[in-house]
Design a protein around this nucleic acid. Structure first.
Length: 306
DNA sequence: ACGCCTACCTGCTTGC
DNA sequence: TGCAAGCAGGTAGGCG
């Protein structure tokens, strides 16, 4: 469900609502949601009495910075949501982890499909350069604790909305890559935060066919894609995210960006630029939407293609 | 290192 | 109406 704009919206909501709150107890109702530390009783024990100081985001994870320097990471994956429930709110059968706050409210991790993951880590290392690919997950798997939050994101690429993420830097990361643009935009080690919705939207905006390969792009096209990625993400944040079926912010309200989407899940509707019907194809098992006229097909030099 | 594929889960929609 | 298949915003892990 949530990509960068949705996760950013949740993080900003939580910053307003739970910064300063103290966690008094934790119910883990689906053990596998908690990945570190384990077992869940230990996760709960380590959080009792912790104060949430600040809420932020890295990639598609919400970061709850605790007053003692530790960081809780919440990866929402497909259907995860973090919702602040006032005291007395009816229970939610899909709440997988419930954080009880000292003021009587609950911070609920709701997750129908149970793909979401929560971890608790020592602070530090968030802003350093990427380590060797694979090192992070291997180390986490093998670690006897304490493990730093920066290591969790060691394989992730840069934040697309950071000032330091320039077209030149984007081009350097794309250089030599033979993969298709659609798949590369979804690759979190190339760039962090773009998912299926915003990948399609960015390619439409940049007028690039999703099957184009990175190494086929001119410098001007790289600049166009760079601008487009940033624009669609910023617009998504401004509209509090795209709610296709069940995404909601921490206030439980859906975002307004779905109606602004140009191609995502608009198969058969007219292109906003040229009127041609939006097409849907599958790339790397992911549904992909684009305008066959505005986003010209790459030249195919081999193999039977649709 | 890269690309491709599967698994992880549940619920909703679609087509027969 | 029932039932099975297909689809969904993500990503770790295994394969070649």
């Amino acid at each position: 469900m949530p990509e960068l704009p949705e996760v950013e919206t949740v993080a900003r909501d939580l910053q307003r609502r739970v910064a300063g709150a103290v966690i008094t107890d934790v119910d883990v109702r689906w053990d596998r949601t908690v990945r570190h530390p384990e077992p869940p009783e230990r996760f709960a024990a380590e959080l009792r009495g912790a104060r949430i100081q600040r809420v932020g985001r890295r990639a598609k994870s919400v970061l709850l910075h605790l007053a003692d320097g530790r960081v809780m990471t919440v990866a929402l994956r497909m259907t995860g949501a973090l919702i602040v429930a006032p005291s007395g709110t009816p229970d939610d059968p899909y709440a997988r982890v419930v954080f009880h706050l000292a003021d009587g409210r609950q911070l609920r991790f709701r997750d129908v499909r149970k793909f979401g993951r929560i971890g608790l880590w020592e602070g530090g290392g968030l802003h350093r350069r990427a380590a060797a690919p694979g090192a992070a997950s291997r180390a986490v798997r093998e670690s006897r604790d304490p493990y730093r939050v920066g290591d969790v994101f060691a394989r992730h690429g840069p934040e697309p909305l950071a000032r330091s993420f320039t077209a030149g830097r984007f081009g350097a990361r794309l250089r030599g890559r033979t993969g298709r643009l659609k798949s590369l935009l979804l690759d979190q080690s190339l760039l962090a935060g773009v998912g299926n919705i915003y990948a399609d939207e960015a390619l439409w905006r940049a007028r690039l066919h999703p099957l184009r390969t990175a190494n086929s792009l001119s410098e001007a096209e790289v600049r166009r894609l760079h601008r487009a990625v940033r624009a669609v993400l910023r617009q998504g944040i401004a509209n509090r995210g795209s709610s296709i079926s069940d995404y909601v912010g921490a206030d439980g309200e859906p975002g307004d960006n779905a109606e602004q989407l140009a191609v995502y899940r608009r198969t058969g509707e007219p292109c906003l630029r040229c009127g041609r019907e939006i097409a849907r194809i599958v790339i790397g098992q992911r549904s992909t939407h684009f305008c066959p006229r505005c986003q010209r097909e790459p030249l195919l030099w081999e193999g039977p293609q649709a």
